[in-house]
Design a binder for these strands. Structure first.
Lengths: 230, 230
DNA sequence: GATTGTCGGATTGTCAACAATCCGACAAGT
DNA sequence: ACTTGTCGGATTGTTGACAATCCGACAATC
């Protein structure tokens, strides 16, 4: 007999949090939009208690903001927020890279990253930006997971969620760029065997300058296939 | 007339979260201890709803862990947890140092840090380890705050809280070491004007090896004035 | 016209009651 | 003796009702 995992129990508040997180990240709600408890509880078929608990979680994750006695609102991220998100994301990814390159997970991580980069290349060639975008996120998440630090990964998840919000809010979504997948392949190559400095340099190049990316994005609002970093 | 700040509204759940956080960090509850909702709500004079919301927050902060239908427990941190906490803390502090040294907050941050280090020195000379310990935490928090990143500071706060838990759980509290305050003075000096590499090197030295620190702490359980890092 | 005061409606915050879950103790069956 | 089934008690999870808060609209006053 195969060994089994314990059955995972999920409270209603957990399920509600997951649903809301997905909807927020999918852009279902406008930035700054208020989530009305009574209306939302009715729509989800739950009472307000678990909904409040769920929203509390998302407030902690940075996706919602709560004003006592006024309500809970979807965050409205500014250009400064974008800069901050990118700064923290970059810091976390760098920390992960430092650990991966100096530790025992280097080749395993590179292998996973190569897998994702290849699938991302295929998706891009097939013109499927949505899948490509998801794989882009997965690439970076896998990179951070490669450090083997639960807390680093958990922190990264929240910041990555905010990145998605920034994409919707400030940049009009994930955009395809011709060589984006190849950049990821290159990163995976470097992570496999390059010196730390070379990896970090490429990572920096890969991120670019968030503000400049934003400005280009706003100028090219009719979609000139310009880069949007993840 | 002086300009006034808006009056801050606090929900009961916020107040409960703050109280619980303080009590947990003060070691009021044993590692792994269950917090019983009915009993605790009675003791705090609130209903279970706000208490549940508060506990949800602390679960997100990593101080509590929730098992559906079983209850909420104070986290029981292992040696691996200690390593992880220290790794993430160090990563965040490094990221802060990189930004401070390359940005415009260098001298202001160093000034604040010097102030704290001096007060810490005085407290240590006066034999007041508790104040010294609090100042030690404040030093590092101020260092991270100097990066001017709200998200970095917020993340650091949660990891620092876990550090305090580790101290209680695994190391028997904050211990005084003769030259600890001077180490902080030295760090503040380096942050004021040294090259990045020198600052980072001293920061690494300052942290030491968490596992070795733990082992020394367990061996010296009768208190040989050995270092406990923050 | 500007300022102050009042009120009602919408919404959030809290509470207490009931439902659901889980675990341990005990009984029954093999 | 070991395994399976049942039940009760303790606790958590959810619900709906009531309390509290806030804001905007409107009236009254200067």
């Amino acid at each position: 007999m195969a060994a089994s995992k314990p059955i995972e129990r999920l409270t209603l508040s957990t399920l509600v949090a997951e649903r809301l997180r997905g909807d927020i990240l999918a852009g279902t709600y406008l930035p700054g939009q208020q989530l009305h408890e009574v209306e939302l509880a009715l729509a989800l078929g739950v009472s307000r208690g678990p909904l409040r608990e769920a929203m509390q979680r998302l407030v902690q994750e940075g996706l919602l903001t709560s004003i006592p006695h006024r309500g809970v609102f979807v965050v409205d991220l500014s250009e400064d927020d974008l800069r901050d998100v990118f700064f923290v994301r970059a810091s976390l990814e760098e920390a992960a890279v430092r650990r991966i390159v100096s530790g025992g997970t280097r080749s395993a991580t590179a292998k996973l990253l190569h897998g994702i980069a290849d699938r991302m290349d295929k998706a891009m060639r097939a013109g499927d930006s949505a899948v490509g975008g998801d794989l882009d996120f997965a690439f970076h998440r896998t990179l951070v997971d490669g450090a083997g630090s639960a807390r680093l990964s958990r922190t990264y998840a929240t910041v990555q969620a905010e990145t998605r919000l920034c994409l919707h809010r400030l940049m009009g979504g994930y955009r395809r760029r011709a060589d984006l997948a190849l950049e990821h392949v290159r990163l995976a190559d470097l992570i496999a065997s390059a010196p730390l400095d070379a990896v970090l340099e490429e990572l920096h190049r890969h991120f670019g300058d968030p503000a400049a990316t934003l400005r280009r994005s706003l100028k090219d609002s009719d979609g000139a296939a310009e880069d949007t970093t993840r």
